[in-house]
Amino acid sequence: MSGFKDKVVLVTGGSRGIGRACAVAFAKAGASTVVISYAGNEAAAQETVALLQAEGAKAEAIRFDVSDSAACASAVDGIVKGHGRLDVLVNNAGVAVDGLVMRVKDDDWDKQLDTNLKGAFSLIRAVSRPMMKQKGGAIINITSVVGEMGNGGQAAYSASKAGLIGLTKSVARELSSRNIRVNAVSPGFIGTDMTHQINDEMRQKMLEGIPLGRLGNPEEVAGAVVFLAGDAASYITGEVLKVNGGMYM
């Protein structure tokens, strides 16, 4: 597939889970350069880099905290200087700290909003100029089914994910005239390190609410992300694509 030939892709939170699957899917789709960011898991990041190189892509892992807006700006600057362009941004980095609303600590609220929502904003702001200059680009924000339907115990997480949907639609409108498309992918219950935190009882209950009767896997989310980033989706912007097995329609 040559759709992503010569394209440079940045996937945040790319060391594990959905982020890794996205990075690998872009490499498989022929992206020439795939850069992942990661917060701290060096071993996992290097493993992803090896997977990307095995697909024939140039790969790079950069460690920075997406909640640090200066770090986001300098990371994007480094990529544009180093690789000459940046075609696709996947805002995937996210954290979940679950708890009943009366017990949510300020720090936990801030951490989730700063990483999941402000991080995406900071990176979008940073890529907007280079993408405007190159007269095109694609941004995909990974939101969540709980941002659409809410979830007890996830006030902060779902608020951050719902916020991403508003961010997606506003920026889609703002940058549409420059051929920069902005979309969101909203995964349901996907088997990753994040969802392994969920206890068995809860898991069983959630499975009962999924028409397809199983957890999704990260590759199934990555497929939607690569689709939205590519030419096949050239007339799609401001969309929230659900990848949730029918859990929320």
Partner: peptide, 11 residues
């Protein structure tokens, strides 16, 4: 010009 045009002009 629109507001994005101004940003591009400045760049």
């Amino acid at each position: 010009a629109d507001s994005l045009d101004i940003v591009e002009l400045v760049m």
